[in-house]
Structures are given as C-alpha cells and as structure tokens.
Amino acid sequence: MYPFEITTPLTIDAAVQALQNEEAQPLAGGQTLIPTLKARLAMPEVLVSLTGIKELQSIAERDGQLCVGAGVTHANLAKQTAQYPALAALAVDIGDPAVRNRGTIGGSLANNDPAACYPAAALASAATIVTNARAIAADDYFLGMFETALDEGEIITEVRFPIPQAAYYAKFTQPASRFALVGVFVARFADAVRVAVTGASEEGVFRWLDAETALSQAFSAQALDGLTVPTEGMMDDIHGTPDYRAHLIAVLTKRAVIAAG
C-alpha cells in the first residue's frame, strides 16, 4: 500500500471540512475502496474515515419512510429493518458475512457499482438520498456507471426509503463476486409500481418503464408476458452476453412480482 494519511472525524461537519482538501476522499466501510487503493485505481493522499460518526448510524421510521443512516452496515440494516423486509433480504445477501459487517449503504450508493444491489432498491423505492448539502431524488441521483449526482466533497448522510405495500428483490448472483449478475427490484406502491434493474446496463441501474406500465395495470407475472428488454447497451463480459442479461431481466422481474405477491 502506498503512503497516505487517515483522518477520523467524529461529526459530519468535521468530515465535510476535512474533505475540502482536493486530495481527500471519504472512506466508509472500505470493502470496495481498499481493494481499489491496493490496485492503485485511486490514489488519494488523505482518507477521511466516516466510520466514527455516530450521526450516520441510526435507523428509524419517520412519516412512512425508513430512514437509514449512511454509515449503517449491511449486517445492521438486515437485522434492524423489519419494516421493509425486501430491503433487509437484499442486505443480508450482499457479499459474505465479513463484508456485511463493514460495508455500508452510503458507501455502496456513493460508489454506484453497476452490479451493486442497493442502487436497485433506492431507485425502485423512489428513495431520497440526503447529503450534507441537499436531498436528491433517486431518479436524479444515478448518472451512469460509477457516476452519481454527488459533488466533490459531498457525502451521503441518510437514505430515506418510502415503504412499499409489497416488494421483492430477485438477484441472480454472480457466484465469484457475489454481486448481481442481474438483479431486479420490484416495488408496488398505492399509486405506482417501480421496477429497477442492476447488473445489466452499461449505464448502471435503470428503471424498466415498460414493465412498470404493465404492472401498474395488473400486478401479475402474466402482465409481463411478451415484454422484452432491448439488448442494446447491456453489459457484455465473460459472465453473460447482452442477450443473456436482457433475458434474465424479464425472468427475474416475473419472479420478483410473484414473490412480492
């Protein structure tokens, strides 16, 4: 590992202050960032560790929304989120137990890996990503592979999930990485159905609008019969072709609808 400095602020304000340094980068659970540093894919001079900030650790229900602090680990979210079972089930299937004890929801959303699970939950739930500076609707937050609406030095503080009437995350796990080869999160609200897909598009997580329209009229697997996703723009790698990924999206969406009930 190359030499760098780690600072350990105890408040959001202190962290934001430390991130004014252009050469600084926030460090959440580190489960992606630390391997990235080892590979020299990033070489910040200062890491601002967010782990000691208690303000980022709470989970609470407010106004029908599940409000999750950005520093909540996957393991803690899985244990403490009885109000939103589909989200808890997603969290408990990320990585492996040791990764879940360190990795955080804020870190995952800030990184926006195109095969990560949380982006699908946030987008399908129409979540609000709250930062030290503003609140961003999920629809405006995800801008492409590893790209988000976050500005330099801006950190996520909380994620607010409207709690759907029914929801399910169907994940086809890539068994080596434990990321989603394809994952589909379906959330049914009183006035809408939202379908978000991860692991498939070169642009990262996206909403499958045709499926949303069909499911809004009839929330059943049959409503999806004949619907297909264009293969253009789907990721192509050793794990799956664009055709295969597009096919998986349709299959997993049906499974999610059936499981959500």
């Binding site: 630390i34 391997p35 560790s49 393991a75 040791a98 004890n101 360190r102």
Partner: peptide, 29 residues
Amino acid sequence: CDTSQCGACLVHVDGLAVKSCTMFAREAQ
C-alpha cells in the same frame, strides 16, 4: 488473496467477523 475474497485473514473486531486485509489498523483503534 489480499482482495477480500478468500477469508484467510478473517478476525473478530469487537465481536464481529471482518476481513483484516480490508480494514486499516487505525480503524481498530
């Protein structure tokens, strides 16, 4: 592996299993 895949470096920090190759010593203060 040194890439947080294999678990050979697994230890407990405050009772929780973690991969010690993917955590800084400073963070175990």
